[in-house]
Computed example of a mutant assay.
Amino acid sequence: MTKHVLLNNINHQHTRVITQFSDKFGDNIASVMVYPTEFMELQKEYPILFRQNPDTEKFHATALLGLQQNENLFLDPITDSGWAARYIPANIVRGPFLIGFQRQQDNPDQQSAVVHIDLDHPRVNDQQGQPLFLEHGGNSAYLEYISKILNIVHQGSEVNDVMFAAFKQFDLIEPVNIEFELDNGQKHRLTGNYTINESKLKALSADQLLQLNKAGFLPLAFAVIFSMTNIRKLIEIKNRREKAFKVQTKDSQHKTR
């Protein structure tokens, strides 16, 4: 259930939001939708992949967080935040918040962006976490931070279709199947994903590269390509956790004997 309401400093003066990440807050997901406005940071931590809506044929980008369903390899209860990466995708950080639009009273034809909050979100309460407003009604530092995160989402949503149209114009999008084998011998295959064809990107003419660069999409295309090296990082994390789980299981069995 969700209960989205317009955020304000009267009704939500005492509202707090837990900022730690955990599976109990719904963070144990294998991928999350991401936006062009965060590609440069995402590439340092996660594989950036494309998915296509079969009904609309539109593309969107995702950050790969795990290698199987309901698995987020970046969740780590040892860290203060519960997330073991320097950059966390905006759609994860925003938690119970989203952008809405409100018509201006003095100009009904114009809409202004406003912040909404899901009061039924498991992070929202009035006891624990970060306050949204200061004692005398001003925005807290946390709410100012969330506003910046929502701006990343909003601007990224606006440029998303334009970026993919440019990539399709130069035939840069190609399907990619990710196959790997874990140290324990388990074989996995991830399908339904797309990436940037590096060979075709490098083969573009100077004018085409200039066109992509002027639009701001050339560095984003390279960011997607570079991010693919993070698949090896995910495999390494999963191998370590599989080994740790095996050791814990053996220790538990030994204690019960």
Rank of each mutant, 00 (worst) to 15 (best):
N72M: 01
L182R: 12
G156R: 04
K246R: 06
R240C: 11
A30P: 09
K200W: 02
L42N: 13
R232Y: 02
K3T: 02
I149N: 10
Q155L: 13
N197P: 12
L67R: 10
F101L: 00
R189H: 10
L220S: 12
K24N: 00
R189Q: 13
A90D: 04
D171W: 07
A215Y: 05
L182C: 11
D55H: 08
N197C: 14
I92K: 04
P47Q: 10
I237P: 02
Q104K: 01
S112I: 00
S31F: 11
T56R: 09
L143M: 13
I225F: 05
D55M: 08
N70D: 04
E181N: 06
E45N: 03
A113R: 07
P96W: 03
K250P: 07
I10C: 07
L210S: 15
H136P: 05
E236Q: 08
I48N: 07
A165E: 10
K44Q: 09
H116W: 00
F97C: 08
S157R: 06
R94E: 05
F25G: 04
K202R: 14
Q104N: 01
T37Q: 00
E135D: 15
G156M: 06
V34R: 03
F97S: 07
I92N: 03
Q52F: 12
E179G: 14
K238H: 04
L143I: 12
L212R: 03
I78R: 07
F97W: 06
L6R: 08
V115Q: 14
T229Q: 02
